[in-house]
Design a protein around this nucleic acid. Sequence first.
DNA 1: CTTCACATTGACGTTTACGTAATAGCGCGT
DNA 2: ACGCGCTATTACGTAAACGTCAATGTGAAG
Lengths: 159, 159
Amino acid sequence: MPSELRRPERAFTIRQLCVEFKCTPRALRFYEDKGLLSPARQGLNRVYSYKDRARLQLILRGKRVGLSLSEIREILELYAKGDGGAAQNAKALRKFRERIVVFEQKREDIDLALEELRTACARMEQMLADSRPDLLPSAEEYDKIVRARVDGPHEVRAH
Amino acid sequence: MPSELRRPERAFTIRQLCVEFKCTPRALRFYEDKGLLSPARQGLNRVYSYKDRARLQLILRGKRVGLSLSEIREILELYAKGDGGAAQNAKALRKFRERIVVFEQKREDIDLALEELRTACARMEQMLADSRPDLLPSAEEYDKIVRARVDGPHEVRAH
DNA sequence: CTTCACATTGACGTTTACGTAATAGCGCGT
DNA sequence: ACGCGCTATTACGTAAACGTCAATGTGAAG
């Protein structure tokens, strides 16, 4: 990550975060409505800190792996208040352990899916290689797919 | 898996699959409506084959990792018709490769989340051990959580 | 024969996660 | 002064994935 984005004093407009993470202003305001974000204000305008940006990253990551916004909010809340009394902490610990179990299950689901997809691909490649090798997607085409990954924060360069 | 469930001639009622996979009849009919399942019929009643059961397992697995029903349907369709002409196959192969990339990203998201959850747990355990060791969840309690996993097909035993 | 439990097909309601205007204010370049 | 582009709030619309009745049928049990 460019260290410039990590500087604690760095602030972002709603548009900047939207471009970087490929989402809409509406979505960010919606997350705020639901209590997942609470950026500062300059007048009416929202000002997102580096911490807000990190939270947003967690939110989108959670969404990609199939969590609902309320689940994400719960996790973020537990994660935020590391204090709040020992009893509260003990409850949070239990919930976190539950989450870990769920995530491990998700991981296994993904591994199973990947395995099936890969063997299916291998079968199809074999069939194509036998029948119509000219139709086999080229290696460069595969690279294009990989480079076009839509996931992480999109590098934003000065034009 | 109990081999009894794997026997190709084995048939299931809608209720049996719902109990086994912890979902509702409404959901199965909905998946059918959307073209993800097409069980046989005895009169009006649906009769699910072993293959239908396997499809359902894939559907639910897909849902857990954050796929929409239409995405799942697309994958199942591509997966089903391994024939359909070489050109079709080449297109399917490209789509499968895209899916693989997406799934690899999801896997990474989950690994990142797991890492954060684990270090957070460790921190909280440390804090609790220092302040109120009596509140630390016991090892047996952790086992209970693990045993209570709600994921895979639920073992259905004759009473 | 009746009741009961489960099945079916509609049809409408609900929650989630936003999209899509409509309206209005602020800073800035010309 | 005037439009342009960005922002804001409010409000209504919408697609997905079912939940929840209502009305009906049907086979087995008592």
